[in-house]
């Protein structure tokens, strides 16, 4: 469940991130400003608050919509949706910065060379820009994944039965807090170190064209 939430959140984040990065990179002042506001707020405000905002605020919104449609009573925003949305919005702001940095890191010379041989913008984007952006973005992306993985623990406050919540419930009912939290912690550790290895391998593969800093005297 933890993985599912994180994955969905990351997807939401990727979409948002790409949009916001594009906004910040466009020269349009309004777009840049809006993009900056987004990244500043969602990187600067504690995740917990944002989760409260989405969960409680979202629930209020859904209830209001329900009332407008004639349904009385409280409608809760499903915790998976709230959790994924919240973490998605947060990771989106980090991803925007990663994409922006990666895009800026692609050397201008390479872009010019591509134009010089007559590549159209679309082709250039696809063949030159994207692969490089991916390569530069990978370390940052690995970070965002780890971050979101740990943020997903916070979603437990919305009652979603993900890893954190399950540990909490088990611990509370058996009063064996230490044991269950240690186990929970260990499971997270396994998740993060596995992710680490996957990303390291991906990075090495993506960077196979770059000279290695290792092995130099």
């Amino acid at each position: 469940m933890t993985l599912a939430v994180t994955a969905v959140a990351l997807l939401i984040g990727a979409v948002l991130g790409a949009v916001v990065a594009a906004a910040k990179l466009s020269g349009n002042r309004m777009l840049v400003f809006l993009g900056s506001v987004y990244t500043t707020i969602f990187r600067g405000v504690p995740e917990l608050l944002i989760i409260y905002l989405i969960y409680f605020g979202g629930s209020s919104a859904v209830t209001a919509i329900g009332q407008a449609m004639g349904y009385e009573g409280f409608l809760g925003l499903p915790s998976f949706a709230a959790g994924a949305l919240a973490v998605g919005i947060i990771s989106g702001s980090y991803q925007a910065e990663v994409f922006r940095g990666a895009y800026l890191a692609v050397a201008r010379g390479e872009l010019e060379a591509a134009s010089a041989i007559g590549m159209s913008r679309g082709l250039r984007l696809r063949r030159i820009v994207m692969p490089q952006v991916l390569r530069y973005a990978l370390p940052g992306f690995g970070n965002v994944w780890q971050l979101s993985l740990k943020d997903s623990a916070l979603i437990s406050v919305t009652g979603l039965a993900e890893l954190m919540r399950t540990s909490q419930v088990a611990a509370g009912s058996t009063r064996q807090y230490f044991l269950f939290f240690i186990v929970g912690g260990a499971l997270y550790l396994i998740l993060t170190s596995l992710s680490d290895q996957v990303f390291n391998r991906a990075e090495r593969r993506a960077n196979r064209s770059m000279p290695s800093a290792m092995g130099q005297v």
Binding site: K150, M164, Y177, I182, G184, G185, T192
Partner: peptide, 11 residues
């Protein structure tokens, strides 16, 4: 670094 702060705090 690998585990969530929340778990550490609860622990």
């Amino acid at each position: 670094r690998g585990s969530p702060l929340l778990i550490q705090m609860f622990l």
